[in-house]
Amino acid sequence: MKPQEYYATFETIDLARDPDFQAWVVAPTSETNQFWESVKALYPQQQSTIEQARLLVMGLESTWQELPESAVVESFQRLRQKQLAQQPEPKRLFFRPVFYRYAAAVTLLLLAGLGWWLYEGATSPVEYKTAYGQIQTVTLPDGSVVTLNANSILQMSGDWQTEGRREVHLTGEAFFDVSKKPLGKRMPFVVHTGAADVVVLGTRFNVNTRRTRTQVVLQEGKVKLALQQQPDVLMQPGDLVETTGGKTALRRERVDAGRYVAWRDNLLVLEEERLAEIVQRLNDEYGLTVSITNKNLLNEPFTGSVPANKPELLIRLIAETFRLRIDKQDNQIVLSNYKNE
């Protein structure tokens, strides 16, 4: 249970929405009675708020009708039956003369469409795109599975498999689980990014191309990094390689690969990550513009994990850790020191 101070300035409706408060109103125990009496005693100005919120909970709770799980399951079954019943059964249509006229027209259209599709499909690229805060899993024609992180684009050509190579272009971040080709047919799988090509033979790895760098973390198997101005790099599981594409040196280190792919489990894991990097990630993956007024803090490391769909929770955690104030200005979130400190 939260401390008494927590409730010092609550408004009626917020108090009524507090789960601990609701539990007390609906099923008071001697312990909770004592707690709320102590809140009233400590903050006399809150007495009428507490009393009103209590009545509000009583009144609103009596309007809620609880349904057993079985009722929900039965209702879903009724939905299923309706869905089945709505599937069309075009039986009688077959024997009417009008059917043949329509059939001829439809066949012509289909043939034209098929021709166009064969012609166009061979050349027009296929693109998968995720919005801010969205993660999407894509199964490619060869059975490889790609999980696209937020704000990322995966492109490939339409004649993907016939060309003899499996090639995709990535902007943003994605995790690849590449399937091995059966029957000994060796078809390299290549991920193109701005700064490097990742050449693969059946493996699991993460590619991040945000900003100007390309970072590859290998979880399992083997990949070769083909770089523009440097010799190729052969990676082992657990290797992290980062390049910006130019002549600048590579960064290469051994890491815990699981940490770099945690986003796939809808978790945002930060380990000793600098605030400056976190601010960039919030911008890359959620489109949030966060600024920290005290520039000295930008190099401070932060460790923690939150559900990936709750970036606001991360911002609150950071604010609380570094004792900062959160202000929203237009589309910006500003974290600044409290005035009196």
Binding site: Q65, E66, L67, E69, V72, V73, F76, L79
Partner: peptide, 13 residues
Amino acid sequence: AALYSAHYRHLIN
């Protein structure tokens, strides 16, 4: 199905 059962009670009420 999970979406349905998470929201059915809310919607009925």
